[in-house]
Design a protein around this nucleic acid. Structure first.
Length: 350
DNA sequence: AACGCGGGGGC
DNA sequence: GCCCCAGCGTT
């Protein structure tokens, strides 16, 4: 039995029931694929249901505001996915006349859709013979066929592309793609896979050469940089001053507070003075300084402190992107986890 | 070709 | 702590 047949057989016994496997609707498949980029199935599931419910069609998604989409994406991370998803929905309406593109090359034109996602949608929805290469596939192929070059190197990637095409099941690319990803997720796991009960143990390069724990090999590691943030939390009676982040990389489009940012620690007294003088408002009172909160991103280690400042008379000379929001208005905006956690502590959220 | 971009979970 | 997760856009 060849590679693909073995994996498809395994898949028949072990596949999970996932909602996006019950449909051929390219829109829903696209939704699921964007949500699942760099995201575990368990984490993405609730978001998939939310998006299908709130945006039943690509037109509904296109007609929504970006704020609305970001709000629904809140907590899932990699927010460019949400911005691009919304943008691409408008592409479908305008460039494709409201009909979801039906082949690899056209699907690839959608913002936020790369090689992997285009292959996934075109195979799952339209049975196009395009091989997917995601983290699971890279692991399975590199172990079984023995790709010892780094998978994040030019050479390693080229080998994976070649192998994925060679071994793609041409008669049923959709099932093949689903199967190999599921196999990577459940059987050929990153850490301590159960090789004794693996249908591909015979013929596996990594197992034969005791390299299961060493493959796939990566040569680059992401560097985590420190980041210190002192937040000014201006509160006036039932309103809180929020600021939409623009062109700052992290959390673009989401709402947080006016702040001071530094790569080096910010001395508390210094931050308090500076935040209070940030605005030329009268009658402000620093009422509370939070503990330092550590928030870990993939590439940042953020240490944040919140300075709660009561403002007696609500100033209207606020800066671009800033808004005074009531609790119910705030509930409609997308905010980062770090901010959500703080707002919950001071009883300003849910 | 390299880097920035979230949040959560397993070990 | 470290690694990984149905990757992509930008430079």
């Amino acid at each position: 039995m060849n590679f693909s047949t073995s994996i498809i057989r395994w898949y028949g016994f072990h596949k999970r029931d996932l909602p996006w496997r019950e449909t051929r609707d390219p829109y829903r498949i696209w939704l699921s694929e964007i949500i699942l980029q760099q995201t575990r199935v368990d984490q993405g599931m609730a978001y998939y249901h939310k998006f299908v419910k709130n945006y039943p069609s690509v037109e509904d998604l296109a007609n929504a505001s970006q704020d609305e989409v970001l709000k629904d994406w809140q907590g899932l991370g990699y927010y460019s996915r949400a911005r691009n998803l919304h943008y691409a929905a408008n592409q479908v309406m305008q460039e494709f006349g409201g009909e979801f593109p039906n082949n690899f090359n056209e699907i690839l034109k959608l913002k936020g859709v790369g090689e992997y996602t285009a292959a996934a949608i075109s195979s799952f929805a339209f049975d196009e013979a395009q091989a997917v290469i995601d983290g699971n596939v890279m692991r399975v192929l590199s172990r079984f066929f023995g790709v010892t070059d780094a998978i994040d190197s030019k050479e390693g990637k080229a080998q994976l592309v070649k192998l994925s095409k060679e071994h793609l099941n041409q008669k049923d690319p959709a099932t093949h793609n689903q199967a190999i990803m599921e196999f990577g997720a459940l059987q050929c796991t990153p850490v301590s896979p159960d090789c004794t009960n693996c249908p591909l143990a015979k013929g596996c390069f990594a197992l034969a050469n005791e390299m299961v724990a060493d493959l796939p090999w990566k040569e680059k590691k992401t560097v985590v940089k420190p980041m210190h943030i002192a937040y000014a939390v201006f509160i006036n009676e039932d309103s809180i001053l929020m600021k939409q982040r623009k062109g700052e990389g992290i959390w673009e489009g989401l709402f947080d507070f006016p702040s001071i940012v530094s790569e080096t620690p910010i001395e508390t007294e210094h931050a308090a003075r500076q935040l209070l003088q940030m605005r030329d408002w009268k009658d402000t009172l620093l009422s509370e300084v939070s503990e330092e909160v550590t928030h870990i991103l993939s590439h940042r280690k953020i240490k944040a402190r919140f300075f709660r400042i009561n403002v007696l008379h609500k100033p209207h000379n606020i800066q671009n992107g800033e808004k005074w929001l009531t609790k119910s208005e705030l509930a409609e905006k997308g905010i980062p986890r770090l901010i959500e956690n703080y707002l919950k502590e001071i009883d300003w959220y849910e």
